[in-house]
Write a protein that binds this DNA or RNA. Structure first.
Lengths: 334, 334
DNA sequence: TTGTACGCGTTATCAT
DNA sequence: ATGATAACGCGTACAA
């Protein structure tokens, strides 16, 4: 059996209370301190976190819930979170909501029942009520990437509106008017934000929008592929296309290759995420790059603060800047 | 405060023992069963896993340790593991060893101290002694992707030797003799296995190997890039190159683009992992594709079996087949 | 500063 | 089948 605090106390000739106090950084006489340290070393004693948790109601565990694990965006964020929180002795457990609100709720219930100290979640939809339902005031939650309705939470977001504005504006200044967009779902926050950036440019430049150039996918390779074909096979195809996430970018590129569309001569193209990819492809792709690891870091910082009971300026919304990287996939029409 | 088993017992008018037995599926009289169920519903009682764990020494938590989290290979495997194990009520916590043996050992110690029920690990080197040191017989461990020295563990591997053989043999039958390989580190199992596949072809076909065409990288984009340049800038460059993981493939492709090398006219090329990429690039890439999710699934299966105390045919080595996918990046020299 | 003793919420043992 | 009670290993009043 593992050695316990009792064994240490016995060997050191002190009471368990004293050992416990020593372990938790309270004052202990120098003499006892040495005896305890010696006993701990002798017995190779290690605290039992389970027993401690039972008393303290702290599990030293945080969870991160994402709609998909095998996803570049998710994993970079998770790495950022783990990197930040392991320093404080936290374990991070990962949960896959599979883009399903019911499953998301089930996961949250599971987590709460398991006494995680905090949760960072990328919600799979606009709905936030079920999150509030489950966690109430019991455990701190910070959202990432997306905001939800009907609920106040700390959140780490990306400034989608302005970076998309920047990208679309670039196309407009190069003479493009018929600009297709393959966007995320209407019921996801980032989808709406990226749409807003797109619309603002047209409004500011007084260009009418052809709504038939606006397509909604679901952030998967398949829809990127299908929607690009739809756009380019229409009677009046766009002169430029903007795709709003990594996997749809891949899908769209596959369609472009298959249709033998020349970039940028026949079509200007702006993708999303994954800088390495943009450099790999010829011509190099113009892309919007998100600060993924930073999202994780930032979310972890806020969560840690809340876990320690610091409730300053709740709800705290951090909005990180994304970057528009120029490439050879864009052509001037002038 | 959360309601406990005591509250349930009180409301149902039975003892805590009876409630506990009910909760754990032992026989309880029909009458009491109904009363208990009613009380549980009334009080919205939920078992406290911490208290249970303290008694049972089971945390219902498994850990997966990888050299890098933000990595296509890692995340697909983790998704496979989580998918399999959540069904049984297990949480999976993720650990990043950062490719560092010391850190790897520290993580293992942390995990053991935290009473995880099992560990699946992608070791960051050949060394296995520190794993044995830490976990001893206490907690089941299954390796994935790589075997280690001086230690017996269950493992889920990929048949690297034969799939690499297949790829290289293809090049040989197309007339290639000077075949470069950008391989993983010498002290990593997969690196050696892929090397073995390469060498076997040359041995079987009685072709001498030019050792200057063999390069060792560290599975990063940077080394893929640098080593491809090294190969192609040498006095006698290869007519074909094979790269042995995804990130080095990306790096090598970037170098190829930069040097304006025409694929497959000036160089035949075989990459690794990530089928989508191979379809995206023109000409389409020939690649070796690993069954990532299946590795995770399989590792999870074995681990679960061990957790339940089933020690059949230990150590169990599962060797999954990878697939060589032809592409337009290979040219016949005849 | 230290020791004692109780409690955290379960499970397991023992009678009954 | 059930109830009473002792663990599990730790933290923490309380008293000294």
């Amino acid at each position: 059996m593992a050695t316990t605090i009792k064994d240490v106390a016995a060997m050191a000739g002190v009471s368990v209370g004293t050992v416990s106090r020593y372990l938790n950084g309270y004052n202990v006489s120098e003499k006892n301190k040495l005896k305890i340290e010696e006993a701990i070393k002798q017995l190779d004693f290690q605290i039992n976190p389970l027993a401690r948790s039972l008393k303290t109601n702290k599990s030293m565990t945080v969870a991160v819930v994402v709609p998909e694990l095998a996803n570049i965006f998710s994993m970079n964020i998770i790495e950022g979170i783990e990197h930040k929180l392991e320093k404080y002795g936290y374990s991070v457990i990962v949960c896959n909501s599979e883009g399903n609100v019911k499953k998301e709720k089930a996961k949250l219930e599971f987590l709460k029942r398991n006494y995680v100290d905090g949760i960072v979640i990328m919600p799979c939809s606009d709905q936030g009520a079920h999150i509030t339902d489950v966690v109430k005031e019991d455990v701190p939650v910070v959202l990432m990437d997306r905001l939800v309705n009907d609920a106040n939470f700390d959140a780490v977001l990306v400034d989608n509106v302005n970076v998309v504005y920047q990208a679309i504006e670039r196309l407009v200044t190069l003479g493009h008017r018929r600009i297709g967009i393959i966007n995320g779902p209407k019921n996801v926050y980032t989808g709406r934000e990226r749409m807003e950036g797109y619309r603002r440019v047209f409004a500011d430049y007084k260009i009418p929008i052809d709504e038939s150039l606006i397509k909604y996918g679901d952030y998967t390779e398949e829809t990127g592929y299908a929607l690009l074909k739809e756009l380019m096979q229409s009677p009046a195809p766009p002169t430029a296309v903007f795709v709003t996430n990594y996997y749809m970018t891949i899908g769209a590129m596959m369609a472009i290759n298959e249709m033998n569309i020349q970039i940028p001569d026949q079509l200007s193209f702006i993708g999303f995420d994954q800088l390495e990819l943009s450099k790999l492809i010829k011509p190099s792709l113009a892309v919007i790059v998100q600060p993924m690891a930073e999202i994780g870091n930032s979310a972890a910082d806020i969560l840690y603060k809340r876990i320690r009971g610091n409730g300053d300026n709740f709800p705290q919304i951090v909005r990180l800047k994304a970057q528009f990287v120029e490439g050879e996939s864009i052509k001037s029409l002038y």
